[in-house]
Design a protein around this nucleic acid. Structure first.
Lengths: 239, 239
DNA sequence: CAGTGGTCTAGACCACCGC
DNA sequence: CGGTGGTCTAGACCACTGC
């Protein structure tokens, strides 16, 4: 375990035991360095982590101050997770699915977003997710056929798409840009989920990227908003 | 200008001029340090910035690689901005508003979220935003009366609430947790905006914090989704 | 002005990757 | 195994804050 992690955890322990309280100024970096018998840069690495996690507020020339812990949002949208994970996270049993899988010629929007060459085909994968026998989400996934190979077409059930792509296709999704849309009532995919009068539906149009920021998957994910809760942490851009 | 910023910008210049191309491995840190006549730690600070901005991918033992630039999302929700700013950002003229301002006893949900003592009152501020004579957004803002003082009650028009709070009340909002909700058609606030058949409405329930993570403002912000576009960048949590 | 964090150095050793 | 990034040190000087 690196030293700066140990220092960070020691400081967190001071917070937890109440030795440091909200609003308190932490000892100067040089003092902490002496106390923990490490160099000042090591202390700074630890404090940088605490700052990233929103536990302290560093002010040049003034000191480092303990702030309220960031309010924890249960499952926050800026953390990318697969629909399968979101269902588990919501405490639901990932039930029976109706899957459809086909090969298509992409429409211009898809081939453009996925940066595909002309003439290439896409795999279109659709499925309804259920819990307690009721539909709770619907997903339409679009992938370049070239990326996923031929095996997927014979595949009966995919399971977690993220997991399948990682293990079978060596595609590691780790980022996405998502547009949040409230679909119209006339949207046929939305209608599949509108089974209760108090149900509303939210759509995420998501373009997923691998670690090289290559687009690999475009998806339309519809969620019942009476079942799933969506939240997000927002912060001012500068200082 | 700090050295590590200069190094970062020199590297970005190499990217822009095509000396470094997507997928390329950057020279080793120690080589870059020699080239720029700085220490290795300075180079590492520069690379850390590039990594945070998603421009390079650092792999322990392998090297640092140039990746596709992160797809730029126009106005992404994780960047906190006021409704006033969102309206300007959408290219709309912030038109006539119908403002209401009153003092109330808070309901339990509000006083709890705003961490208020019993018996304290809240200021409730509502307004409709219009553009081209049509309503495009509706906001309901709830603030502890104690925080904002008495002056606000006599105030005719507030303008940008964020700006008002900063300049008149010394409250600097810099973070929020927002829940994204698709309101029901029966929601009276939502109905104010449903003036076209192809209009849908999205609601942000937002709890705003100052730099000490003290909650200072709870707001319900309704937006017409045919006028405003909402997007978000999502990333996997761990490396 | 004293105290604080921000930057920077020139080394060192370790952990990991890919050949 | 050599090359790479990850961590760490013991200093130094600078820039900012608040009294």
């Amino acid at each position: 375990m690196p030293l700066y992690i140990q220092v960070k955890e020691a400081l967190e322990e001071d917070i937890k035991t109440g030795q440091l309280r909200i609003g308190d100024k932490l000892p100067a970096e040089i003092i902490l360095a002496k106390r923990f018998q490490v160099s000042r840069e090591t202390v700074r690495s630890a404090i940088r982590l605490l700052e990233e996690e929103g536990k302290v507020h560093v002010r040049h020339g003034a000191g480092t101050f303990l702030v309220n812990p960031i309010p924890r949002t249960p499952s926050s949208l800026e953390n990318l997770m697969s629909v399968t994970s979101m269902i588990k996270y919501a405490g639901l049993e990932d039930g029976e699915r109706r899957e459809k899988l086909r090969v298509e010629a992409p429409i211009l929007e898809w081939s453009s977003l996925l940066e595909m060459d002309d003439g290439q085909e896409v795999i279109v994968h659709e499925r309804v997710r259920t819990a307690n026998g009721e539909p709770v989400a619907f997903s339409k996934n679009i992938l370049p056929r070239q990326l996923v190979g031929e095996a997927i077409i014979e595949q009966g059930s995919i399971g977690s798409l993220f997991k399948y792509l990682k293990e079978q296709c060596n595609i590691d999704i780790y980022r996405a840009t998502s547009e949040i849309v409230v679909p119209l009532h006339t949207d046929p995919h939305s209608q599949k989920l509108l089974i209760h009068p108090e149900t509303t539906v939210l759509l995420l149009k998501q373009l997923h990227y691998d670690r090289k920021n290559q687009p690999v998957l475009y998806s339309f994910d519809y969620f019942r908003n009476d079942v799933f809760k969506f939240s997000i942490n927002r912060a001012k851009i500068d200082g």
